[in-house]
Simulated scan of single mutants.
Amino acid sequence: MVDLRQLRTFKSVAELGSLSKASDRLRIAQPALSRHIKLLEHELRIELFTRNGRGMVLTPAGHLLFDRTAGLVRQIEQVRDDIQSVGGAPSGRVVLGLVPTVSCVLSTRFARRVIEELPQVSLCIVESYGGHLVEWLHRGEMDLALMYGPSVDLHLSVDTIGRDHIVAVGPSGSGLAEQKEVSIEWLSAQKLVLPSHSHGLRILIEKALSRKNLPIQVVVEADSFRVLTSFVEDGLGYTLLPHSAVRADAAAGRLELAPIARPGIARELIMARPADRQPSIATAAISDFIRIEIERLRSEGLWDIQMTQAGHPDAALR
C-alpha cells in the first residue's frame, strides 16, 4: 500500500533528480530513500525513474504520478503544520513565488522580517515569471505568489494589492532624468528593448501605444529583467519598468528615469493562491506580512505603488 513517506520521497527525488540531494533535504539516509522508491515502484508495478550516471529521471509514469500527487503531498504536510500551529506560533513551510521586478525590491527585507518574527516558519522564495508561477500554483506546488495581473481568468484565489506605476528607463547621460515626464508619443519615437510578446508588460505597453494608433520600435527582446536593464545601461535603447525595480540603479547613476504623462501606465499587483484549498496558518501569516512590508516600502518612498483598500495592511489584519 502506498504511504505518505513513499510519496514524500518520490516528490523530493523527482524535484531534485538525485537520491543524495533528496537525502540532504529530507535528512533521511540514502539507502532508506532508495527502499521507499523501490517499494513504491513494486506497489504500482511500474518503473518511476530511469537511473543513469547523471541522476534519476522521471519516466512517463513517473511524470503522471508527480503531476497527480505533488499537490496532495503538500496539502497533507500543511494539515500537519496547522495542527502543530494551533494555540501557538505559525509553523511549517511556505513556498512563495515572486516575479523578478518584485523580488528585487521585496525579497531581502521580507526574508529578514520572517526570520525575526516568524521563526518557526520555513520560507522558500521562488523567483520566476508569472506564467510559471500560475502553473505551480495550479499544481499545488506553491502556496502563494506575488505577481502582476490582470487577474481575470486565472482561476486562482486572488487579492489585488494595488497598482504599480511604470516609468521610462534610459541610460546614464541620456538626459531622461531632466525631463519632467515623457509622453506616449515620445516613447513611440524611441528605440525600445522590451520583453517578448507573451510577457504581460509588453502587452500593456503595446496596448497603450495602439490606443493612439502609434507604432512601436523594438530593437531587441529579453525576458530577463536584469538583461533588459543591462541593455539600457549599454545604450541599446530605452525600456519601461516598475519604478521600484529600477530606483536603486537610478540612485547609483547607472540609469535615468522619467514618469509617463497622464494617464500613464500602471500594472495590477496581485497576490494569488490555489483556489481549491484553504491557506495554511503559516501561509495566511506570510500573506499578512507581505501586505505590511509593501506598505512600509511605500511609506518610505521605496515603492511607488497605489494600494487598494483591500490591499492595505490594516484591512488584512481586520
Rank of each mutant, 00 (worst) to 15 (best):
A14Q: 04
I166T: 06
F49V: 05
T9N: 05
S107T: 15
S198M: 11
I281S: 03
G17K: 03
Y129H: 12
G237F: 04
L204Y: 00
G88R: 00
L302E: 14
L133A: 15
H243K: 13
V218L: 08
V246R: 03
F231C: 13
I270R: 02
F225Y: 14
L302D: 06
G162V: 06
I260W: 07
S157L: 09
D3R: 14
A315D: 13
Q120E: 09
E256A: 08
S18I: 07
K191P: 03
L96Q: 05
H165D: 13
E127R: 10
D314Y: 08
Q179R: 12
G71D: 05
K191R: 15
V57P: 09
A258K: 01
R226D: 13
L123K: 02
D164V: 04
P119R: 08
A258I: 02
I125A: 08
P263Y: 07
R267I: 12
Y238S: 01
L146E: 04
M307Q: 09
Y238C: 01
M56F: 12
L65Y: 05
I305V: 10
W186K: 13
F49G: 01
S198L: 09
P150E: 07
L236G: 00
F49W: 09
Q278N: 15
L33S: 02
T108F: 07
S172M: 05
T9Q: 02
E77Y: 06
A14G: 07
I83F: 14
D81T: 01
H132R: 10
Q179V: 07
G130P: 01
E233C: 00
Y148P: 00
S280M: 06
D234I: 06
H312V: 04
E185V: 11
H132G: 15
S91H: 01
A282V: 01
L39H: 13
V95M: 05
I292K: 13
A285N: 03
L26D: 04
Q84A: 15
F49H: 06
L187M: 15
S196C: 15
L241E: 14
P100D: 11
I305G: 01
G92D: 01
K180M: 11
E233I: 00
S174G: 05
I260D: 06
S230A: 13
I270Q: 02
G264K: 08
Y148M: 14
Q306L: 12
A208K: 06
A245H: 04
G149P: 05
R68M: 14
R291S: 13
A222N: 15
E268I: 09
E178Y: 01
T59A: 06
D304H: 12
R291M: 06
R8C: 11
D81Q: 08
L201W: 06
L7M: 13
H312A: 13
L58I: 05
S183G: 06
R267A: 10
R68H: 12
R247M: 10
R109F: 13
E141W: 08
H197K: 14
A250G: 10
M271C: 12
G62R: 03
G175W: 07
T101D: 09
D81W: 06
G311W: 01
G53T: 10
D234H: 14
D288Q: 12
G71N: 08
L241T: 07
I205A: 04
A275D: 14
R254V: 15
